[in-house]
Structure formats: C-alpha cells, structure tokens
Nucleic acid binder design. Structure first.
Lengths: 108, 108
DNA sequence: AACTAATATTGCAATATTGCAATATTAATA
DNA sequence: TATTAATATTGCAATATTGCAATATTAGTT
C-alpha cells in the first residue's frame, strides 16, 4: 500500500502516467514554462525564478529529469538545463489523439 | 510540509498541474482509455475492467471527477461515467502549444 | 418490507511526496 | 591552495497517496 501497482498496467499507460505525474506539481510546470520562455539552455537562474528554497528546486529538477522532461548539461561550474522535447511530444501526441477521438464519439 | 505551495504559482500553472496530477497514475490513465474505447457512457463495468478492488477504483473515479476529467450521471441503480472533454482539451492544447514553441527554438 | 446490485464512504496500514536546514560536492577564481 | 559560486545530497518533519476490508448508501426487484 502507498505503492502504485504498475505491474498490472501496460507499458504505455505507465509511461504516460509517469510523465503526467512529473508535471503534476505547479513548481514543475513553472520550470517547464520558464525554460520555454528563454531562447537557450539556462545555466543557473532557475532557483531565483521560483518561490522555493534551493534544495527544493533541485529536487524538482531531478524529478523532471528522471521523467525525461528536461536535460542537464554540466557546463563548468553551473549546470545548463533545457527541455527534452521527446517526453512532451509524447504527451502532446497522446492527448491530441484522445481529443480527436472524443470529437467523433459524443455521448452524454 | 508535504503540502504543495500553490499560492506561489499562477492559476494556470495550478490548473495544469492539477489535471496532470490526476493523470499521474496508470489506473486513471487506464480508466480514461477504457472510457474512450466505448461508444457511450459506461454504467457499471469499470470495476471489472481494472485489476484493483472496488473501493480503490471508486476512489480513482472520484479523483478523475474532481479534476474535471470525467462526468458521472446517476442512472437509477448505476452511475454512468464518461469523459469530460474540457479538461483533456485544455491539457492537449497546452502541450501542443509547448511542442510548437519548442519546434522553433532549438537549444542544446 | 426484505433482498439484491452497484457504488460510496470510513478507517487503517504502508509508502510516497513536499519542503527545508544543514552539509557536501564540484569547478572556477583569486 | 583557500575562497567563492552553483548545485546536489542527506536527513527530517509534515502531509498526501495508494490500496483494501468492512460497512454504508441507494435504488431497483421480488
């Protein structure tokens, strides 16, 4: 208990849930949005953009990274983060598909 | 602590996070997929489709409902559930926008 | 009214998440 | 090599989530 029963679901269901879960926190949505507004990788700076302490931001970055949503390149002293398109594209395509199917079959 | 600091984020960030969080569990993704495969509202039946006990499924349905992802109409004895397009369309549009913006600005 | 079927609620144990202070690490710089 | 800047890790407290057994509710049906 407290643990998700992933074994019982398909790989795709688990993958989508994993990505969605990583985006299931406003701080992580805010990080993605911030990375989007800038025209390059961000070295440093992310901590100052968020209303959370440095260790907390670091942990959120870690979670986004482990879900495949961002990439982090070590750049000397700092670490440069940017969005990893693949995961977001996967999510985007998935829900575009759901939306398209819903448009056809109206129920209640 | 253990509580998300929603006050510090925008309404939109909180809304997107809320919907994403609701989809951040494979059982709830599975429920959405099941509702999609059928051409109508589902009365009953959902519990039998999932590898989880009835109270657990009931709770997942409740969470999907409170996030606005599904609707439930009482139909006599049973309750008929179906997808509420609005939330999914919102998420879909949001990520389509992110993807579109990412296509333009390549960084690392 | 008693019975049944479908779903919800309660209460609980196990585990996960959120957030931060303190500390560690890493690499540039003086 | 000390110092500084940027980030990560550890350890902890508070709270949330997951899952289920037991029970309640609700609406047909006999």
């Amino acid at each position: 208990m407290g643990t998700t029963k992933t074994e019982h679901f398909t790989d795709n269901q688990n993958t989508i849930a994993l990505i969605a879960k990583a985006l299931g926190h406003p701080a992580r949505v805010a990080i993605i949005e911030y990375l989007m507004t800038v025209d390059a990788c961000i070295c440093g700076d992310i901590v100052n953009e968020l209303p959370l302490a440095q260790p907390t931001v670091s942990q959120h970055l870690k979670e986004l990274k482990s879900a495949g949503l961002i990439k982090g390149n070590v750049e000397g002293n700092a670490i440069c983060y940017c969005i990893d398109e693949k995961a977001i594209e996967k999510l985007s395509a998935y829900f575009a598909n759901v939306t398209a199917k819903l448009a056809i079959k109206k129920c209640c």
